[in-house]
């Protein structure tokens, strides 16, 4: 099957002469979750802005659902690819949260009945019931960000791009983002994440694309990529804290990747008997 998003030999040079991405090849198929990782300035955001035609390749080609992004209008692409910006100020512009939530559906001429259904669901997930009449600019940035995500949820585009969705979110907000990604995935959407949040990636254990100095340097599943400490060092990435711990516990199974708290608890569950016989587990500090 043809991949839904196909990036072929793409470079992008900004008008000021800075080359932000160089010779990137990438294919994303139906139903995939792909996280784009890399340090600030590595080209992550530039890359994903090519998916909805916000940026056009300087050389090379990007096709989305068989459309060449260079030849299509952004309006047409945006019904396919929804983009939630890192900075919510770049996204929200209407005077009430309610209008913000309905705007996308209206714009795409989605039926009233369907719009109601989707907006209602978004309101529930993000607990926006009491904020519908509020001006988004009176709310704090993490709430504004959630409104951006809720609006995309209402549009429900084929591809959802979330740029730093957990930035500035509290623990509950982060869990909600995880839930949102899983929900989009279950409904058959393609989810593209741009993030520094390694706990989120650990929980998803999804496909990971690593950008470094404007080039793609890795493309594999998180558990494979995170095992490669050399690579993480090159790209200035830090695995989830439990994985840093697991890397130093020699008795764990070296063939496994311990990306989550769950995975380590599970190991202890299976090996508890052996532990009890030894009675050598520390008493802590």
């Amino acid at each position: 099957m043809e991949p839904f998003i196909k990036v072929t030999g793409v470079s992008h040079v900004y008008p000021n002469g800075v080359t932000a991405i160089q010779d990137v090849n990438l294919e994303i198929g139906e139903g995939e979750i792909v996280a784009v990782l890399g340090s600030n300035g590595s080209g992550k955001t530039t890359l994903v802005k090519h998916f909805n035609g916000l940026l056009k390749p300087t050389t090379g080609q990007v096709t989305v659902g068989n459309m060449n992004t260079k030849k299509e209008r952004i309006a047409k692409l945006s019904s396919l690819v929804g983009y939630v910006f890192q900075n919510p100020n770049h996204q929200t512009f209407l005077p009430t949260v309610r209008q913000e939530l309905y705007y996308g559906c209206k714009n795409l001429k989605i039926s009233e009945e369907e719009t109601e259904k989707r907006v209602k669901k978004a309101i529930e997930l993000f607990e926006l019931e009491n904020l519908l009449d509020a001006n988004p600019f009176d709310l704090n940035s993490s709430k504004r960000k959630e409104i951006g995500m809720a609006s995309i949820m209402a549009i429900s585009p084929k591809v959802v791009v979330l740029d730093e969705p957990t930035t500035g979110q509290d623990h509950k907000g982060c869990k909600r983002v995880l839930e949102l990604v899983k929900m989009f995935h279950e409904h058959g959407h393609i989810v593209v994440l741009v993030t520094h949040d390694m706990q989120l990636i650990g929980e998803l254990n999804c496909r990971v694309v690593i950008m470094n100095k404007s080039r793609k340097i890795a493309d594999d599943r998180a558990d494979v990529v995170f095992k490669n400490q050399e690579l993480l060092k090159t790209a200035d990435l830090q695995p989830p804290q439990v994985m840093e711990l697991a890397n130093q516990l020699t008795y764990l199974n070296r063939n496994e990747s311990y990306l989550t708290i769950d995975s380590i608890v599970k190991w202890f569950k299976h090996n508890k008997k052996g532990l009890e016989e030894e009675r050598k587990i520390g008493t802590g500090s």
């Binding site: 804290q241 840093e244 711990l245 130093q248 516990l249 008795y251 090996n271 052996g274 532990l275 030894e278 050598k280 587990i281 520390g282 802590g284 500090s285």
Partner: peptide, 13 residues
């Protein structure tokens, strides 16, 4: 992490 590495030290299993 440093504290945890110490706390989780098990000599053999």
């Amino acid at each position: 992490v440093e504290e945890a590495v110490k706390a989780f030290q098990i000599v053999s299993i």
